[in-house]
Simulated scan of single mutants.
Amino acid sequence: MLSPKKIVSDIFKEEPNIENVMFVGCGASMADLYPAKYFLEKTAKKLRISISTANEFNYDTPVSLGKTSIVIVASLGGTTPESVEATKVASKAGAHVISVTNSEGSPLTEAAEFVIVHGFHESYAAKVAKMKNVLILAIEILQKSEGYDHYDEMMDALSKIDDLINESVKTVTPSAKVFADKYKNDKLIYVLSSGATLDVAYSTASFLFMEMQWIAAPTLNSGEYFHGPFEMTEKDVPYLLFMNDGPTRHLDARALTFLQRFDAKVTTIDAKDYGLASIASDNVIDFLNPMLLTGVMRVYAEELAIARNHPLTKRRYMWKLEY
C-alpha cells in the first residue's frame, strides 16, 4: 500500500497544477478531516480548501471539482453510503480521489484512485490514525505544491504523537472518573474549543455525547462564545472545554475565566497537562492538539458510559432501522 508521500507525489506527477483540496465525509469521519483542512487553510498561500458533509458534496457539488482537485474521502468502515457515492461523484469529475478507511476492500475504495487503510482498535493512539493520516496527506500536498517551511518539525512531532497519547491516557482515569460522577445525571453539556481542535468539540458533542449517550450537547467555538452563547452561562450549568496549547489558547482561556466567574460546572481537558510542547515546536503545535485531546477524551467517554450504565455502543436508531 502506498504511503501518503508517495500518493501525493504520484498525483503531482500526473497533474502538477493542483488548485484545490476537498475533504469529504460524514459524522466522526468528517470531524477527523477537520485538522487537515484547518492546517491547509492556515498555511497554504495558493490552494483552495473546503470541507463538506458527503451528501452536500453529492447534491450541491462544487463547480471547481475536476482534474486539478484532490478529494479526500473518509469513512471508518468504508460503507457509509453518502461517502461511497462521493468517491464516485469525484472520480466521474476527473478528480484525484483518496479514500481513507479502516476497512481494506470496502465500497469506499472501489472508485478511488488511491487508498489509505489505517488502524483504529489497537490502542488509544490508533483512534486518531485516520486524523493523523489525513493530516500527513495535507502536509505532503502543501510541501509538493508550494513548500512548507516547518515540514521537518511537523513530521518529527507526528512521529512522536502516538507514544505521547498512549502514555497520557495511563494517567487519565482518576480525573475521568471524577468527570463521569459529576456529569452522569446531566441532560445537556455545552462543549467548547477553538482552532484546529474545534471539531474535537463537535465530535465529542455530536457522537460521544448525543449519539452514544443521548445527552444534548451544543458545540461552541471558544472565540464565538462571547458573541451570544455566553448569555446561557449560569451557576452549575455543565460545560466541557478543550484547551489548546498554541496560538488559539487565549480564546479558550478567556472562555474559562468567564465560566469560572459565574460558577458554571466546567471541566477542562488541557493539552498542556499532557506535555504536548515536549514533542512539538511552537511552529506546529497547534495542529497536534486535536489528536492528543481526542485520545484523552476517549477515556472520559468510557468512564461516563460506565457511570451512566449506558454503553457507548447503545443506539436508538443507528443499526436498528432504515433511514
Rank of each mutant, 00 (worst) to 15 (best):
P107Y: 01
G228C: 10
L251Q: 14
N185R: 08
T61E: 04
T294Y: 11
K42F: 05
G94M: 04
K127Q: 15
M22V: 10
E56L: 13
N185W: 06
R254G: 08
T294P: 03
I18L: 09
F287V: 05
A31C: 15
L256Q: 10
T313D: 12
R254Q: 13
G77I: 00
M243T: 13
D236M: 13
S175R: 13
I165R: 06
A54R: 03
M22R: 01
M291C: 01
T43F: 09
T80W: 00
D149P: 03
A157K: 04
L108D: 00
V8G: 00
K67V: 07
G119M: 02
T53S: 14
Y317L: 12
E104S: 10
F230K: 15
G27R: 08
E104Y: 05
L40H: 06
M30I: 12
G105T: 02
V200D: 09
E234P: 03
P218V: 07
A277R: 09
D10G: 03
K88C: 03
P4Y: 03
L198G: 05
F287W: 06
K46R: 15
Q213L: 08
E302V: 01
D282N: 12
P62G: 06
L292T: 01
S281Q: 07
S69N: 07
N221H: 13
N58H: 03
S278E: 13
L312W: 06
R316T: 11
G195N: 08
T68F: 00
V71P: 03
A95T: 02
M297D: 07
A36F: 05
A126P: 04
L2F: 08
S50Y: 07
A74I: 04
M1A: 07
Y239A: 10
A125M: 03
V128N: 02
R254P: 08
E82H: 05
I136F: 02
E146N: 09
D252Q: 10
L158C: 08
S64N: 12
D10T: 09
F242S: 10
W214S: 12
K37C: 12
S75T: 02
S123E: 05
D286P: 03
E224S: 14
D163C: 08
I141T: 08
V172Q: 02
R298I: 09
D270N: 14
L192R: 04
F226L: 12
P35K: 06
